[in-house]
Amino acid sequence: MSFERIAPEQYDSIPEVPEPVEHAELFGHVGEADELARAYRTGKFHHALILSGPRGIGKATFAFRLAHHLLANPRPAEAPSTLVRPDPASTLFRLMAQGAHPSLLHLTRPAADRGAGFKSAVTVDEIRRVGRFLSMTSHDGGYRVVIVDAADDMNRNAANALLKSLEEPPPRTLFLLVVHSIGRMLPTIRSRCQLLKLKPLAGDDLLAALRAVSPGSEEVPDDLAAKASGSVREALLMTQFGGLDIANAVDAVVSGGRFDVAAAYRIADAVGGRDSTVQFRLFNEHVAGIAEARAQAAGQAGDAELAARLADQWSGVRQRIVDTDTYNLDKRQHVVGLLGQLCAAR
């Protein structure tokens, strides 16, 4: 039976794969989930949480599971001390999945003003919805939950607008900020939130999650598990959209002794076509990950000058990705240019 999506499509949706809000299961992160459940039960709950960690490890799923826990248990003292698995057939679960629950606001990149696709950032207009949302009275006196996914996709104006809401939060309000790269968050936002660092999934959890969201998935090869780095999203893209071959090809070009222009154009042909939207996105994510890893490695090695230079390159890579998407630039030239840039900086 084919998958039927009931949640609104997002900028990073994967065909035939449920959105995080549609997941009843949470794989990994058990200790962190139970700690928050106990904090809620005992009245020691922070009003804003940053869920930080690599892309695709279940941060958004974690956020929606925690939101479900609060909405299903409006009286904290009577709430379970663990996050109980929700019933996918329940009214609460389905309202959340459809984006129709009055006490839950999910903010992400909005649809583009013209044509198909989505904007390249979480905009200030999206964040302004928070004020209107919080001005309404909770329908049952319980919590209202705002999820920003991903918060490091906010532009500067949006981040400043969110900061105002975090500074004076109404009672019984929870902000959940899903963050892939904590370094991109304003320090003033970070200082007003409790930081929760979620780790990549272990092998067993990764395999279980992969099978849950993509029934029939075969055993994960060793090289895929390593390439996916504990990310279900990466594993899915690699197994279903040729992402492992793309990652291997990119790594071969970037780590080679010289810039192989012919190989770069072969990659560009594979990911730059009209019907290769997912492959192009995977290429961009992998290249950005390489640039980020280089900057972090230099910083950890204590080479401040190199770390600063590589951090600038990482920022440039991200901006180039945004510009290509925003202005609909030539994808093949984008691919070759990024690969040449990474090779020149090694």
Rank of each mutant, 00 (worst) to 15 (best):
Leu95Ile: 10
Leu104Tyr: 00
Arg85Ser: 11
Val84Arg: 07
Arg94Glu: 05
Pro74Met: 03
Leu95Ala: 14
Val84Lys: 06
Ala89Asn: 13
Pro74Asn: 06
Gln98Lys: 15
Pro74Ile: 00
Pro74Phe: 01
Thr82Leu: 08
Pro110Ala: 12
Arg75Cys: 09
Ser90Gly: 05
Asp87Gln: 07
His106Ile: 08
Ala100Pro: 03
Asp87His: 08
Thr82Ile: 10
Leu105Trp: 06
Glu78Ser: 06
His69Asn: 07
Asp87Glu: 09
Ala67Lys: 04
Val84Ser: 08
Val84Leu: 11
His106Gln: 12
Leu83Trp: 02
Phe93Met: 00
Ala111Ser: 14
Leu71Tyr: 04
Ser90Cys: 05
Pro86Ser: 09
Asp87Lys: 07
Arg85Val: 12
Leu71Phe: 05
Leu107Pro: 05
Gln98Cys: 13
Asn73Gln: 06
Leu95Gly: 08
Asn73Cys: 04
Met96Trp: 03
His106Tyr: 12
Asn73Glu: 05
Pro110Ile: 05
Asn73His: 09
Leu70Gly: 00
Arg109Trp: 11
Ala77Pro: 05
Ala79Trp: 02
Leu71Glu: 03
Ala89Tyr: 11
Pro76Gly: 02
Thr82Glu: 10
Glu78Leu: 07
Asn73Arg: 03
His68Gln: 15
His69Gly: 01
His69Asp: 06
Pro74Val: 00
Arg85Thr: 12
Ala67Gln: 05
Leu70Ala: 03
His101Arg: 07
Pro110Ser: 11
Gly99Leu: 15
Ala100Thr: 10
Pro74Gln: 03
Pro86Leu: 09
Val84Cys: 05
Pro74His: 03
Arg75Ile: 10
Ala111Gln: 15
Glu78Thr: 04
Ala77Glu: 15
Leu107Asp: 10
Glu78Ile: 01
Pro80Trp: 00
Thr82Lys: 07
Gln98Thr: 13
Ala77Cys: 10
Pro80His: 01
Ala72Cys: 07
Pro76Asn: 03
His68Leu: 09
Gly99Phe: 14
Leu70Arg: 01
Gly99Val: 14
Pro102Trp: 08
Ala72Pro: 03
Gly99Ile: 12
Thr82Gly: 04
Pro76Phe: 00
Ala67Gly: 07
Pro102Gln: 13
Pro102Glu: 12
Thr91Glu: 15
Leu105Cys: 09
Arg75Gly: 10
Ala79His: 02
Asp87Ala: 08
Ala77Arg: 12
Pro88His: 08
His101Cys: 04
Leu105Pro: 02
Arg85Leu: 14
His101Ser: 07
Arg109Gln: 15
Met96Lys: 02
Met96Ile: 13
His68Phe: 11
Ser90Gln: 06
Pro102Ser: 14
Leu107Trp: 08
Ser81Arg: 14
Leu95Tyr: 10
Ser81Phe: 09
Leu107Ser: 09
Ala97Asp: 01
